[in-house]
Amino acid sequence: MELPTGYLTALDAMNRHVNSARPDAPVQVERARPALLTPSRQAVAVALRRLADRIQPRPLPAAPHCS
């Protein structure tokens, strides 16, 4: 053992790694956050859809056919 500090550091890291996934470890419940931008996103989507409908080129009228 030329480097006792390295040996102790490795043991400490190994102990932390092994003991980190214990079945009785405390668990923090992940709470779903409310979507804050949902109403504004829907309003922008509606506005963009209406704008796209106005800008979209209309099909040319059908040419009269001679029979």
Rank of each mutant, 00 (worst) to 15 (best):
L60C: 01
R50C: 02
R31N: 13
P34I: 05
D24F: 10
S20R: 14
Q56G: 02
R50Y: 01
A45P: 00
V46I: 11
Q28V: 15
V44P: 00
A45M: 07
V44E: 09
L36A: 14
P57Q: 04
V29H: 11
V27L: 14
R49I: 00
A47L: 13
A45F: 03
R41F: 03
A35D: 15
V27R: 15
P23Y: 07
R49W: 01
P61G: 05
R50F: 01
L48A: 06
R50D: 13
A52N: 12
L48T: 12
P59W: 02
L36R: 15
V29R: 13
L37V: 07
V29G: 00
I55Y: 04
Q56V: 04
V44N: 03
R49M: 05
A47F: 10
V29P: 01
A32V: 15
Q42P: 00
S20T: 01
R33W: 09
R22Q: 14
S40L: 10
P23D: 10
L60N: 05
A47K: 08
R22Y: 05
P61I: 01
S40D: 11
R41A: 07
L51Q: 12
R54L: 11
A52V: 04
A43F: 06
V44Y: 05
V46S: 05
R54E: 09
A47I: 04
R31W: 14
L37H: 06
Q56A: 14
A32C: 05
L37I: 02
I55F: 03
A45N: 04
R50Q: 09
V27N: 01
Q28C: 06
L48W: 06
Q56E: 12
Q42G: 04
R58C: 01
R50L: 09
A32P: 02
L36P: 00
P59A: 07
V44D: 06
T38A: 13
D53V: 00
P23N: 10
A21N: 09
P57S: 05
L48K: 07
R33A: 15
V27T: 13
I55P: 00
R41Q: 14
T38D: 13
V29C: 04
P59S: 05
V27F: 08
R54D: 07
R33V: 10
R33D: 12
R49P: 00
Q42K: 10
P61E: 08
D24W: 13
P39S: 08
A43H: 14
V29N: 05
L51N: 04
V29A: 14
E30T: 15
R54A: 13
